[in-house]
Design a protein around this nucleic acid. Sequence first.
DNA 1: ATCCTAATCGGATGAGTCATCCGTTTGGAT
DNA 2: ATCCAAACGGATGACTCATCCGATTAGGAT
Lengths: 179, 179
Amino acid sequence: MDGLRRDAARNRARILSAAQELIGRGEDLGLNAVARAADVGVGTVYRHFATVEELEEVVVWDRFAELDRMLDEAGPDRFDRILAQHVALLVADPLFEKVTAQPNAVLPETTSRRTALIGRLAEVLAEAQAGGRVRRGVDATAVLLLACGVAHAIRSAQLAPDSAAARALLEVILRGLRP
Amino acid sequence: MDGLRRDAARNRARILSAAQELIGRGEDLGLNAVARAADVGVGTVYRHFATVEELEEVVVWDRFAELDRMLDEAGPDRFDRILAQHVALLVADPLFEKVTAQPNAVLPETTSRRTALIGRLAEVLAEAQAGGRVRRGVDATAVLLLACGVAHAIRSAQLAPDSAAARALLEVILRGLRP
DNA sequence: ATCCTAATCGGATGAGTCATCCGTTTGGAT
DNA sequence: ATCCAAACGGATGACTCATCCGATTAGGAT
């Protein structure tokens, strides 16, 4: 993002916001389509992002940041609440779920951001375990994957994120984590 | 399958087995590719299956049958075992997981087979609840979705289905279902 | 056995997407 | 003001998709 010529930076930003737009509409990313939406040449998109995966990952960085903010803002005894919010985010954004679950990102930075996130989740988890609210013997990665799993199920079954059925699924996970 | 001319039946079978083949190799189904692999005209594939989704669903019918067989063979106190086997199947076959989780199939028969399966799972669930091994208040659909969720997580994270990490995830679900 | 026709086949083809390549433009250093 | 490396953009060949229709075939009628 730095050391980038001014036009390059502008276009990169345009591309990312166009991609956000398209993703939001549920349309599936094509680098040509993104170029059209961003009003930028196809070549430009391909120079900034060699593959769709790269673009997807960079877009998801924002979601990582968002969750990070939630972690900052959540008060004490936050484990359950965070998990619910996390799941809600994952349900809303399939890409976030996809990138989060996958351990092998294309971009090294994705991997490091994901690792950082797991680190923060581990703190929350440790608190909850110390407070006797979560059983010991589960690690943050497991919690992350469980969140991805329920989120995927909720989305696939087209359940409203706050429907009774969706809550019931999350409830099972929560109970399964209790001491 | 009945009332089909002999050549039509032969081709339909070829197409299905070619599709199985491709899916098994993880390649993603294209109706033209299937035609090539089945050594059949493209038009033939499109007459038998209007869309990829249809073909996918019909292929998955076999998986439904397989799980049904498992349900027959499992002895008493079978809830945990069945769930584990079910998850293993779902991990192995992404298509099975996809079709299972989705309530709106393209083909009516898929929906009815799915419903039938949920009915059988409900029996097993009821047994387990009667035996005090599973808490009341969860329904078979929830169990099905949870299975799809963990399966998805395991596959995405590329965990070996019998690795400690994978077992841990299933364990959380199982515990979450206990009374 | 032969004919007849509706059912089925197959692949040529127009439409649409993908990703590269290269001539043109532009930012910004000197 | 000049220069050139960096960045742009879009024309294009390669590839996939799914339709359409002339050729073929199964299998019942005669």
